[in-house]
Write a protein that binds this DNA or RNA. Sequence first.
DNA 1: CACACATTCAACCAGTTGGTTGACAATCCG
DNA 2: CGGATTGTCAACCAACTGGTTGAATGTGTG
Lengths: 108, 108
Amino acid sequence: MVERLDTTFHALADRTRRGMLATLAAGEKSIGELAEPHAMTFAGASKHVKVLERAGLVERRRVGRSQLCRLRAAPLHEADQWLRKWERFWNTHLDALEALIEADKGGE
Amino acid sequence: MVERLDTTFHALADRTRRGMLATLAAGEKSIGELAEPHAMTFAGASKHVKVLERAGLVERRRVGRSQLCRLRAAPLHEADQWLRKWERFWNTHLDALEALIEADKGGE
DNA sequence: CACACATTCAACCAGTTGGTTGACAATCCG
DNA sequence: CGGATTGTCAACCAACTGGTTGAATGTGTG
């Protein structure tokens, strides 16, 4: 579960891959279709898809000679849960902390 | 804003850095205090803090010979917004898509 | 069968990461 | 002042990234 967060966040930390996810949100796409808007070779796109797949964000199936990729939202949900947990905590606790620090510092 | 997502997700894609954020949630800490639970040199910890800082997740101030680090939650919020946007979209649109695919595939 | 198509694989490349060490700098303490 | 504390910086390392090429693989088409 910890490694899952690593791979999920890593997969999302790239503009090209986020773009591919956005493309996939419109429906299943082949590797070629995913490559095209990024002006990239098949092989390059294939690597990115593999990263997304390792993170569990994408699934593939063979259709004829194409590989069709589809989204899997589950890991997104995990990452979101993690983020929201911390965000909630920080929003609650940071105000008091901040006041303390400002008082100690004497104005920024 | 796009690069911001890059750096934020990248900062979060490391177990050590997520651990540091968790430590910082308990209050301000020095570099040494952040390094200790990860059995790491000062220099190593310093690098991680720099990554968190570049992502805007951490701020520092000098106090005596220590560097005190504190959390900044704002970038988390941006990342969370992004995640939630997609999650919402996918949850809504994926069901219909999935049904189509299953029908086409003939059972998994 | 031969060929085009969609993709993968292996090799390579420059740049980045996560980590170390060792030298240096700033600050407190006696 | 001298020393200990708390770092930073620069150099280095092995491993990984994002990308390319070119050769192979699997699959539909004539």
